[in-house]
Write a protein that binds this DNA or RNA. Structure first.
Lengths: 193, 193
DNA sequence: AAATTCACTTGATCTGGATCAAGCCGGCTT
DNA sequence: AAGCCGGCTTGATCCAGATCAAGTGAATTT
């Protein structure tokens, strides 16, 4: 299962064989069944998790009990309540599995130790985070600038896999829309062509 | 003017004196007058810029000609159209100076060369980007989850300096609100206490 | 000091999307 | 196979915030 992680890392930086061996020691493998929680709001997020297989969602729940998706993660994504993981503060997000999932988890201490033991991992994460920032910037501007339909269309073209794989009510929540609104939007798009 | 940059870096990692000397060679200093552009939409963003002094805004303009703030940057912030800087694609953002500003700019080639010459800069940027991701995540969830008034109140408590320093119409745009709406919100808050 | 400009306010009206409320269907359970 | 549950649709109504339209006052320009 480390092969998925290695190949993901090696898209960005090179790892020597002995670095790969060493790297294994910093991670804990874990399996989750569908609907199982990885993290609950209020707990401290003890691991940054690489998704080897499966699908997870990160979301919070407001006063009214409504869920708001922060992000989805599948093969090749890293998942956590990043603030809680880095600072040790309580998590504001819940994370649970949408499909059966396999993870490789690293603790904050090992994350620190890993970057010190294998400095090129600083570079790997630096590049990873660069891309993540660009993505988040796009989503943020889209959420401020676009209408509901524009947001959906943009998502549908940029992440068609996501539309296939994830239930529509969760996608609505990801876009900050009521499920009914998304349903109507899809209908309108379908009618128009 | 490099002292501001050094002290900012040294909040996160240590720099040897010879590394500091070397680092200077990768940057170009630049001054901007109030209202002057650093980047215009459609151009390629040729520099990642560290703000030594002053205040800038990054924003895009929609079809209707309305501006939407992406972010503000002052002393100690890094500013660019990050996607354009990294990929060489055309910028979607405009950047201009709200106050007279002093910058230290680095080109993509020098950014790459810098991290190779001084590997601890990978670590510096990794940590910088971590924090940036947490901030963007918060703003995104806030924009999806909260009402207009909640968004403003949250901003006012988390970044009071920003409220002081930046014209109210730009803050409205940053929050994704019409200027009239923000004006009314402030009035309501004032009345209530 | 008159004139223009620009940020901000206030009021009146409009509207996109939320909310509330029913049905509909396909898949699980018993 | 009958019943139930959860995801989705559809319709009717509501409302937060946008838009349109004036007005004010402070700063900048001429």
């Amino acid at each position: 299962m480390f092969e998925v992680l290695f190949s993901h890392i090696q898209e960005k930086v090179n790892l020597a064989d002995e670095e790969k061996e060493s790297l294994k020691n910093f991670f804990i493998p874990k399996k989750l069944r569908k609907r199982q929680y990885l993290l609950q709001e209020g707990d401290v997020c003890k691991y940054l998790c690489f998704v080897v297989k499966g699908l997870l969602r990160t979301y919070n729940v407001d006063d009214k009990g409504d869920e708001h998706m922060s992000l989805f993660g599948w093969e090749g994504w890293w998942i956590s309540d990043f603030n809680s993981f880095l600072s040790g503060e309580k998590a504001v997000f819940n994370i649970d599995a949408i499909e059966d999932t396999e993870l490789l988890m690293i603790s904050p201490e090992n994350y620190e130790a890993l970057t010190l033991a294998i400095p090129v991992m600083d570079r790997y994460f630096r590049i990873l985070y660069q891309n993540s920032i660009v993505t988040k910037e796009r989503r943020l501007m889209s959420s401020i600038t676009h209408t509901a339909e524009e947001k959906y269309s943009q998502l549908a073209t940029s992440h068609p896999q996501l539309i296939q794989r994830i239930p529509q009510n969760l996608i609505a929540s990801y876009l900050g829309l009521a499920p009914e609104t998304l349903s109507r939007i899809k209908k309108n798009i379908a009618i128009r062509k």
